[in-house]
Amino acid sequence: MIKKIFKRLGLKDKLLGLIVPFLLLIIWQGAVTKHLFSELLVVPPLTLLNTLIELAKSGDLSSNILASLNRVLIGFLIGASGGFILGIAMGLSPIINRTLSPLVKALQQVPEFAWMPVIILLFGIDEFAKNIFIAIGAFYPMLFNTYLGVSGVPDKYHELAQVYQYKSHRYLAKVILPSALPSIITGIRLSLGLSWVFVVGAEFFGTEAGVGFMMISGRQLFQIDVVMAGLVVIGTIGFLLNYVLQLLEKKLSGGRVAFDGGIA
């Protein structure tokens, strides 16, 4: 299974994807060594690597990453479970769906950062406020994907459940959720990805730990290398989160495509 996934993802394509970043790094390093830019403003990759190593050695890096991940996790859990539960309710009940979908669609139009003043007014700028900020971002992708998965359960599955007297929690656990699972995993992936994007935003508003905090304090101390190290860390962790969940997604939906319209 895993092997198949690797094959499908295509190792070749991945190497192709590395060429451009690698060239950029070389040009970047070259440009700074040749004094095209001031080394104070544009940190060359090798210095950046050095900074990362220093940050890692001092323990700053891991403590800040952990602080951010912790925040992401709490915010994600709040937002995604809300989206998950509402998505199931709206997917199963057309009445709930019709009642709530206009409101949900309207609220979704509010840009994430427009919530910030509201949250600050209501909750201040402490930890909980940040969790709520992340939760709002995590909520929608989970809601929509869960809804899509649940409302898309084929009629025949519902009929089979009826034929064999599957009801309430058993129906949910044995038919609805497994059928909706690939879509739910997509929801988790997108939702977690957005949580990670928003955590850094949340940390720009007063905090004493986190990757966002590390960048803000780097800026205040004019440590441009630390600011850039923060960017690298954010990008890398976001990429890894997405990658792992994408693998999971492919694995869980493996083979299902073949069913649409087929015999099974």
Binding site: D155, E159, Y164, R170, K174, P178, S179, L181, G255, F259
Partner: peptide, 28 residues
Amino acid sequence: KTGYVFQQYALFPWRTALSNIEFGLESR
């Protein structure tokens, strides 16, 4: 007392052959 075989979407893709056959027995 009734069993049903459909033309399409007969099997659950997340279950093995064995486990698909168990489906009707599980709820009972």
